[in-house]
C-alpha cells in the first residue's frame, strides 16, 4: 500500500546529500573545502528525483507520463557515470582503472533502464537491471577497499613495473569475479523463488 522503493530512495539520498554537504563544509558554510563532496551530493540529488518520480507515479499514475520512472532512473545512473568519468583525470593509473570498471557498471545500469522505457514488461530487462545494479554495488564496495582500505597504514610501494601491471590484472580479474558472483546470486534467488 506504499511506494516503498521510492520512499527508501528519498530517505537514503536525503541522508547522502546531508552527509556530503556537511563533509564539503567542515569549517562552516562560508568555506567550501571539498568540492568532490558536492559532486556526490549532486549524484544523490538525481537519485532523489528518481525516488520522487516513483512516489508520484504511485499516487498519480495518470498524471505522470508512462515510463518516466525508468527515464529518471536512467538519468540518475547517467549523471553518476558522467560524474565518475571526471574522477579519471589527474589520478594514478590504478585509480583510473578502478573507476573505469565502475563507470562501465554504472552505464550498464543506465542503458538497461533506458531500454526498459520501451520494454517495460520484459522480465529479461528486469533481471538485467538487477544484475547490473548488483555488480555496480559490489564493485563500489570493492573500490572503497582497493583505494581507501582503512586497514592499510602506509601507501603501497611497488617494487617493479611488473608488480604494478600484475596488480592491474588482479583488479580486472576481481571485477570479472564480481560479475560471476552477481550472476550466481541472481540464479540462486531465481531458483529459490
Amino acid at each position: 500500500g506504499l511506494p516503498v522503493e521510492g520512499i527508501i530512495k528519498l530517505l537514503v539520498t536525503a541522508i547522502g546529500i546531508l552527509a556530503s554537504v556537511v563533509a564539503a563544509y567542515p569549517s562552516g558554510f562560508g568555506q567550501l573545502q571539498h568540492v568532490g563532496d558536492i559532486l556526490y551530493a549532486t549524484v544523490y540529488l538525481f537519485f532523489a528525483i528518481s525516488g520522487l518520480v516513483d512516489v508520484l507515479t504511485f499516487y498519480c499514475p495518470y498524471a505522470i507520463p508512462y515510463g518516466l520512472n525508468h527515464f529518471s532512473l536512467a538519468l540518475a545512473f547517467t549523471i553518476e557515470g558522467l560524474m565518475f568519468c571526471l574522477h579519471l583525470q589527474r589520478q594514478a593509473f590504478m585509480e583510473q582503472h578502478v573507476h573505469v570498471l565502475l563507470v562501465c557498471a554504472i552505464f550498464a545500469c543506465a542503458v538497461v533502464s533506458l531500454i526498459e522505457i520501451v520494454l517495460p514488461y520484459s522480465l529479461l530487462m528486469k533481471f538485467a537491471r538487477a544484475f547490473s545494479s548488483l555488480i555496480h554495488g559490489s564493485w563500489y564496495i570493492q573500490s572503497g577497499f582497493i583505494l581507501y582500505d582503512p586497514n592499510r597504514v602506509t601507501p603501497t610501494q611497488w617494487n617493479s613495473s611488473q608488480d604494478y601491471n600484475n596488480a592491474l590484472i588482479w583488479i580486472s580479474l576481481t571485477f570479472a569475479w564480481h560479475a560471476a558472483g552477481a550472476f550466481i546470486c541472481l540464479l540462486v534467488i531465481i531458483l529459490i523463488s
Partner: peptide, 24 residues
C-alpha cells in the same frame, strides 16, 4: 572509504530487491 561502501551496499540491496521483484 564510507563514501564508497555505503552507496555500494545500497545498490546491492536494490539489486537484490529487483531480483526478488522480477522472480516472484
Amino acid at each position: 572509504f564510507a563514501g564508497y561502501v555505503l552507496p555500494g551496499a545500497a545498490f546491492v540491496a536494490f539489486g537484490l530487491k529487483w531480483t526478488l521483484d522480477a522472480s516472484t
